[in-house]
């Protein structure tokens, strides 16, 4: 239930009692009274910005002895907290000039003295209803904002999940495809060479058959972390290409640099000394790597991207043919 608190600013005790007795008949939770401008400002805590409005409706008697009611109305309405709170002015003044000034000062409505009960109740009631609707709307908006923030966070998470390999935490194939294309374009723009390493765990099927799939997954994770460690520049990129195959993109890297990174990865994997008793290559898990380098001169097409991957794959194939646990480099074009 929306609660309504009313502030009556009036310095006439008889009027105060009269208004209180009427207001008590309406759907009002609390009625507060202030008598002077200073007391009103202090009660509303106008100096403190961004506090929550503690009053939902202000009934302001225009002729106070120390400060003009219109000035008070203006001041209340210029505060961030109370600019939306309806102010109803009460006055014995009849002049339309006065009315004009009151509305210009931001008054929501106007009640003439002597107060007529029916008129007073009807006008206050409509202000209360409006304020209640406003409060409900504000609450709904706040809820919507919260929900939309949650949604954004979830979307971000989903986006990440969609581009990440769940097991190793490396980028997945989809992100690899996009990144390779982007990096080729960048390399072309900057007239840099771009290197690609394709890597494949040697005798991984046998490893899985020997140690089981859970161990196999552990092995994949370890290999992935070696890749991530070696592709450490901000522009370096490593991905799980599929199964036991991985890929590393090295921006602004030539043949020598790429082969060196590939060689480091190969050595690091071997040095992990992950036992592989049924391997015909070594007693530990090893990695074969194919490297290629490109200096892009022509338009980046899907065909070009594919043939670049193909070239690194050929190098990888040759590494396997030559006995595994080694790095082979092939020039692109």
């Amino acid at each position: 239930m929306v609660k309504i608190n009313i502030l009556v600013v009036d310095d006439d005790r008889d009027i105060k009692l009269l208004l209180e007795s009427y207001l008590k008949k309406l759907e009002v939770d609390r009625i507060h009274f202030t008598e002077t401008a200073a007391e009103t400002y202090e009660f509303l805590n106008l100096k403190d910005k961004n506090n929550e409005a503690k009053i939902d409706l202000i009934i302001l008697d225009i002729i106070l002895e120390d400060e003009d009611g219109i000035a008070i109305c203006k001041k209340i309405k210029s505060s961030e907290t109370y600019q939306e709170i309806p102010v109803i002015m009460v006055t014995a003044q009849k002049a339309s000039k006065f009315l004009k000034r009151a509305f210009e000062a931001g008054a929501f409505d106007f009640i003439k003295k002597p107060i007529n009960k029916i008129e007073f109740m009807a006008r206050i009631n409509s202000a209360i209803k409006l304020r209640k609707e406003m409060k409900k709307r504000i609450k709904r908006e706040e809820e919507l904002l919260k929900i939309s923030a949650k949604l954004k966070a979830v979307n971000k998470k989903l986006e990440k999940i969609a581009l990440q390999d769940g097991l190793t935490g490396l980028a997945n194939r989809r992100l690899f495809d996009k990144t390779l294309k982007d990096e080729l374009n960048r390399a072309k723009r900057n007239k840099n060479s771009l290197a690609l390493i394709m890597a494949d765990i040697d005798n991984f099927k046998v490893y899985n058959d020997t140690y089981g799939h859970q161990q196999g997954d552990e092995c994949l994770k370890k290999v992935a972390s070696v890749l991530a460690k070696n592709a450490k520049r901000a522009s370096d990129f490593s991905a799980r290409y599929g199964g036991e195959e991985f890929a590393v993109i090295l921006a602004d890297t030539d043949k020598d640099g790429a082969v060196k990174v590939a060689e480091n990865i190969r050595e690091d994997i071997r040095e992990l000394e992950i036992e592989h008793q049924n391997s015909n290559t070594d007693k530990y898990v090893t990695l074969s790597l194919g490297v290629s380098c490109i200096k892009v001169k022509r338009e980046i097409t899907e065909e070009l991207v594919n043939s670049f991957i193909e070239k690194a794959d050929q190098a990888l194939y040759q590494a396997k043919e030559k006995g595994k646990n080694r790095v082979v480099y092939l020039d692109f074009e």
Binding site: D12, D14, I15, I63, A92, K113, P114, I115
Partner: peptide, 19 residues
Amino acid sequence: IIGHSLKGSGGGYGFDYLT
């Protein structure tokens, strides 16, 4: 000021003559 207040309150309480 007393006159002004009386004018404001009288009718509100039902005493139009006081206003």
